[in-house]
Measured scan of single mutants.
Amino acid sequence: MAAGGDHGSPDSYRSPLASRYASPEMCFVFSDRYKFRTWRQLWLWLAEAEQTLGLPITDEQIQEMKSNLENIDFKMAAEEEKRLRHDVMAHVHTFGHCCPKAAGIIHLGATSCYVGDNTDLIILRNALDLLLPKLARVISRLADFAKERASLPTLGFTHFQPAQLTTVGKRCCLWIQDLCMDLQNLKRVRDDLRFRGVKGTTGTQASFLQLFEGDDHKVEQLDKMVTEKAGFKRAFIITGQTYTRKVDIEVLSVLASLGASVHKICTDIRLLANLKEMEEPFEKQQIGSSAMPYKRNPMRSERCCSLARHLMTLVMDPLQTASVQWFERTLDDSANRRICLAEAFLTADTILNTLQNISEGLVVYPKVIERRIRQELPFMATENIIMAMVKAGGSRQDCHEKIRVLSQQAASVVKQEGGDNDLIERIQVDAYFSPIHSQLDHLLDPSSFTGRASQQVQRFLEEEVYPLLKPYESVMKVKAELCL
Rank of each mutant, 00 (worst) to 15 (best):
P318T: 05
V138I: 09
L193Y: 15
G418S: 02
T119F: 07
L362P: 04
R459W: 13
Q356K: 07
Y21P: 13
G116S: 10
T52R: 11
A388G: 09
Q184C: 14
K35Q: 10
Q286H: 02
I123H: 15
I249G: 03
P281I: 06
A431W: 03
D422Q: 04
I358L: 12
M476T: 14
K479P: 15
P366L: 02
T52E: 06
A291T: 05
I351V: 10
L346W: 09
L307K: 14
Q41H: 12
K477V: 15
N118A: 04
R171Y: 00
I237T: 10
Q41I: 15
Y114D: 05
F282M: 00
E60A: 06
D333P: 00
N274K: 02
F282I: 14
Y472G: 14
K402C: 04
A47V: 07
R452Y: 10
G418F: 07
K229C: 12
L484E: 13
D215H: 07
R83K: 05
Q456N: 07
R404Y: 06
H86G: 02
A348G: 12
Q161L: 01
K134E: 11
D32L: 12
E280K: 05
S447Q: 12
N185Q: 07
Q409W: 11
Q285H: 04
R426I: 06
L42F: 02
R329A: 04
M387A: 08
D6S: 12
C98G: 09
Q325K: 01
Q241F: 00
S448I: 14
E425Y: 13
E463T: 12
K415H: 02
L174H: 08
Q439C: 15
A49N: 01
R245C: 02
R404S: 09
A235Y: 10
P378M: 04
P24A: 11
F282K: 05
A392I: 09
D349F: 02
I249A: 06
R37F: 10
A49G: 12
G393Y: 04
K147W: 06
F232V: 01
W45P: 06
A235G: 11
D117R: 00
E81A: 00
E302Q: 00
F28E: 06
G156P: 00
Y114I: 06
N353L: 14
E463R: 12
R338L: 03
L319V: 08
R426V: 04
L222F: 14
Y472F: 13
A411H: 04
K224Y: 15
H91E: 04
L174K: 07
P56N: 07
E213I: 15
K170P: 06
L255I: 04
G240V: 03
I427N: 07
S434N: 13
R337C: 09
E80A: 14
C113R: 03
T58A: 04
R190W: 13
R194K: 14
L468W: 13
L377W: 02
E81G: 03
L211W: 10
K82R: 12
G419E: 13
A291N: 03
R149L: 06
M292F: 06
L272H: 07
W39G: 07
Q164E: 03
A206D: 07
R452M: 12
G96N: 07
R83P: 08
L186M: 12
R188C: 05
L69N: 12
D32H: 15
R404L: 07
A127W: 00
L55G: 01
P133S: 10
L331G: 04
G259W: 01
N68A: 06
G109N: 00
E79G: 13
N185Y: 14
A348K: 02
I265Q: 14
K246T: 04
Q41V: 06
S140R: 13
K246D: 00
T313A: 13
G8W: 12
K229I: 00
A18D: 01
S140T: 14
S407G: 11
W39M: 13
A335S: 11
I427T: 10
C304K: 00
A388M: 04
G393H: 12
A103H: 06
E376C: 04
K246G: 02
Q161G: 03
L135V: 11
K187C: 08
R329W: 01
T330R: 01
T227R: 04
L69G: 14
C27T: 13
L355Q: 04
A47M: 10
R426L: 03
E425I: 06
G109H: 04
M26K: 00
N118C: 06
F449A: 06
E50N: 07
H107S: 02
Q61N: 00
L108A: 10
R338N: 04
R141Y: 15
E213G: 10
R300S: 15
F345N: 06
L444R: 02
L484W: 14
Q161E: 06
I105H: 01
S334N: 12
D129E: 11
C304A: 12
V429L: 14
G104C: 08
Q428K: 13
Q455V: 11
H442L: 12
I373T: 08
V475G: 13
Y472V: 14
R426G: 08
K415G: 07
T330P: 01
L121T: 10
A78I: 14
F232H: 01
V226A: 03
L314W: 07
C340E: 00
G54L: 05
L331V: 09
I386M: 01
H442S: 13
D332H: 01
L341M: 05
L17V: 15
A78E: 06
W45A: 10
T382I: 12
A344Y: 04
R452H: 11
L423P: 05
E48C: 06
A47T: 10
E463I: 06
C173R: 04
L209I: 14
Q285M: 15
K75T: 09
Q51D: 01
L152R: 02
R141V: 12
G393I: 09
R329T: 00
A322I: 15
P471Q: 15
E25R: 15
L255N: 08
I269S: 00
F157I: 03
M299C: 09
T38M: 07
L130V: 10
I287S: 08
K415W: 02
I265P: 00
D441Y: 15
E70C: 00
R149A: 07
V262R: 01
G96C: 06
T313V: 06
S448P: 08
A431V: 07
L272M: 05
L44V: 08
T119Q: 14
L130G: 08
S15N: 10
E417M: 12
M181V: 12
M389Q: 09
E383W: 03
M292S: 03
F30V: 12
R194D: 12
Q221L: 13
N118W: 07
G156W: 00
G361V: 09
F212C: 11
A335W: 04
A150H: 12
E279R: 03
S112Q: 01
E80L: 02
I269W: 11
D59K: 08
V198R: 03
I373E: 00
L179A: 15
K101S: 07
L255Y: 01
H97A: 08
L461D: 05
E343N: 10
K224A: 07
A322R: 01
E213Q: 14
A453W: 00
N68P: 15
L222N: 02
L152E: 06
V475D: 10
R20Y: 03
L406N: 08
Q51G: 07
S448Y: 12
Q286V: 03
R37S: 13
K276C: 03
A273Q: 01
P366Y: 01
T166L: 11
F379C: 04
R37N: 02
E213L: 09
E462Y: 11
R194I: 05
R20V: 05
I373K: 07
I106W: 02
S434D: 10
P100L: 11
F345W: 02
F95L: 10
K199C: 10
G169P: 04
S112H: 01
E464K: 01
F327A: 10
Q184P: 10
R309V: 12
R309W: 01
Q416A: 09
D268K: 01
I436N: 05
N336Y: 03
D422A: 01
L469Y: 14
T330W: 01
S359N: 06
V88F: 14
P10W: 12
D73Q: 02
A78G: 09
T244R: 01
V92H: 01
Q210H: 08
L346Q: 07
L209A: 05
F232T: 01
